[in-house]
């Protein structure tokens, strides 16, 4: 039996008739066609499916879609401007080599967004600690940490902090 679930996705109201057992990840990817969010393990270990629910970074592979009802969900597709201009953190990942194969990247970028919202001036250790739930096999994390560090500076600059 399907149920109707509604939430805000990247600033727009969405409604979907879904099987209630589905995960938020399934609905984002399969029902709503937003495939930017990836499934790397399906058991909350790798973080490739990280999205923000009401600003908090969560593993959408472990998040029942019904729990998303009435919330505001943000995925990697919601970061860039309408004209395609990348957000400061995306730009920083590009400039600092934070993406290689790119499969973990949407999740790591979203984890970075959540971190910088909470802590606009993180130390490298805080960046590393905040990413322990996001696995990357390509980069060795060095350029990812550099990207988030640079994004913190750019974001503070943009706000005039």
């Amino acid at each position: 039996m399907k149920v109707e679930v509604g939430f805000r996705l990247n600033g727009y109201e969405v409604r979907a008739e879904v099987e209630p057992h589905l995960r938020l990840l399934d609905v984002l990817r399969d029902t709503l066609g937003e495939t930017g969010t990836k499934e790397g393990c399906g058991e909350g270990e790798c973080g490739a499916c990280t999205v923000l629910v009401d600003g908090a970074a969560i593993n959408s592979c472990l998040f029942p879609v019904c729990e998303a009802a009435g919330t505001s969900v943000m995925t990697v597709e919601g970061l860039a401007e309408a004209n395609g201009a990348l957000s400061p953190i995306q730009r920083a990942f590009l400039d600092h080599g934070g993406a290689q194969c790119g499969f973990c990247t949407p999740g790591i970028v979203m984890a970075g967004v959540a971190l910088l919202a909470e802590n606009p001036n993180p130390s490298d250790a805080e960046i590393r600690y905040s990413l322990t739930g996001n696995l990357c096999r390509c980069t060795g994390y060095v350029q990812i940490v550099a990207a988030i560090r640079a994004a913190a500076v750019a974001t503070r600059g943009e706000r005039g902090d």
Binding site: R29, T35, K38, V76, E77, F93, L94, A99, G102
Partner: peptide
Amino acid sequence: VPRPDGADKVGGKALYIHD
């Protein structure tokens, strides 16, 4: 310089077999 496929990867637009 940035990688040519980088923008699509940081934007979630790159299409993998999963997608």
